[in-house]
Design a protein around this nucleic acid. Structure first.
Length: 305
DNA sequence: CACCCGTGGCA
DNA sequence: TTGCCAAGGGT
């Protein structure tokens, strides 16, 4: 959960997950829809699918115990170099360097690495390994992350408090904030679409499940046109059913990792007897909690009134 | 290797 | 308001 996500954001989700699935076996037995609905709002939903797959792998082929080596951990779904090293060092007290964004920043400043991220990643990792102590690997891993989070911060680092002040090349240069150097980011394009809010007389809303992979994979959504650079040419052609669609005087704005979305909302009211088209289902608001609505869809659903 | 993949808080 | 940033991983 903490991959690219802050502790404050993760906290309530983590507590809810442990309460609902107290063991790896329990999580392995869960259905993916349950896991995704419990993850809804956290983002990067492939993590939820991978976590579930990981639980199944550990419960099934490892007899319920996690591997205790970096290589063994790395073979599990959702566990990459960082997480494998984090578990190996913190849980198993093995000599490993979980190089996260904090480590990268600390190391980049210590050695005044001029190469820009993300290309510098391999170099930073190699430099990080040279810092590893001969004992207390778990403590060291967490100390590095906490040093980056509280002292060697992205802006206004508290160098005066840093135990490595005397060894830090960037500090000696007087420009610690100049590191790590980062490559220019590509501009974030805007995509547009129309969302179709079909409301049945009994209060049910028409919903479908997104494809298993890709953006918001496996999550629930209100049907919509494709999201593309240009305004949708003929939105009605993508409507899930024939109805008196009313274009609302409002748009939903949402920012994803690599594009911004402007979603117009069209709404229609239908008789309580209206059947759900193929691939769709009617869901009462009381059932929304069991759905895996990503944040953008929560915004769309505000226009139910 | 480059790109894809969410969300919310904060300066 | 805009951009940055957060305990990265998969393909």
């Amino acid at each position: 959960m903490l991959q690219q996500t802050t502790v404050v954001t993760v906290q309530p989700y983590y507590a809810a997950f442990l309460a609902r699935w107290p063991s790896v076996e329990a999580l392995a037995r869960a259905r993916q829809e349950e896991v995704l609905s419990a993850w809804a709002g956290l983002g990067y939903y492939a993590r939820a699918r991978n976590l579930h797959a990981c639980a199944k792998a550990v419960a099934g082929t490892h007899g319920g115990a996690f591997p205790d080596t970096e290589a063994g951990l790395l073979a599990l779904p959702g566990i990459g170099p960082y997480t494998a090293a984090a578990i190996a060092s913190i849980a198993h007290e093995r000599r490993a360097a979980p190089v996260d964004g904090n480590w990268e920043r600390v190391v980049a400043r210590l050695f005044a690495v001029e190469e820009a991220l993300p290309k510098a990643r391999k170099r930073l990792r190699a430099l990080a390994e040279t810092l590893l102590p001969d004992a207390r690997f778990g403590d060291f891993a967490q100390a590095m992350m906490d040093l980056g989070a509280t002292v060697c911060t992205p802006r206004k680092p508290a160098c005066i408090l840093c135990p490595w002040r005397a060894d830090c090349v960037a500090q000696a240069q007087g420009t610690p904030e100049a590191y790590p150097v980062k490559a220019a980011k590509a501009a974030r394009p805007t995509r547009r679409g129309v969302a179709f809010l079909a409301l049945r007389a009994d209060g049910a809303v028409l919903v479908r499940t997104r494809p298993e992979k890709g953006l918001l994979g496996g999550m629930s959504e209100v049907p919509s046109t494709p999201w593309e650079q240009a305004d949708p040419a003929n939105p009605a052609a993508h409507a899930p059913l024939k109805a008196q669609w009313q274009a609302l005087n409002a748009t939903v704005d949402h920012v994803f990792s690599h594009f911004a979305l402007e979603l117009a909302v069209w709404r229609a009211r239908l008789p309580a007897t209206t059947p759900a088209p193929a691939g769709h289902r009617w869901v009462m608001p009381a059932g929304f909690g069991a759905e895996a609505f990503p944040s953008v869809m929560v915004k769309v659903l505000r226009y139910i009134d």
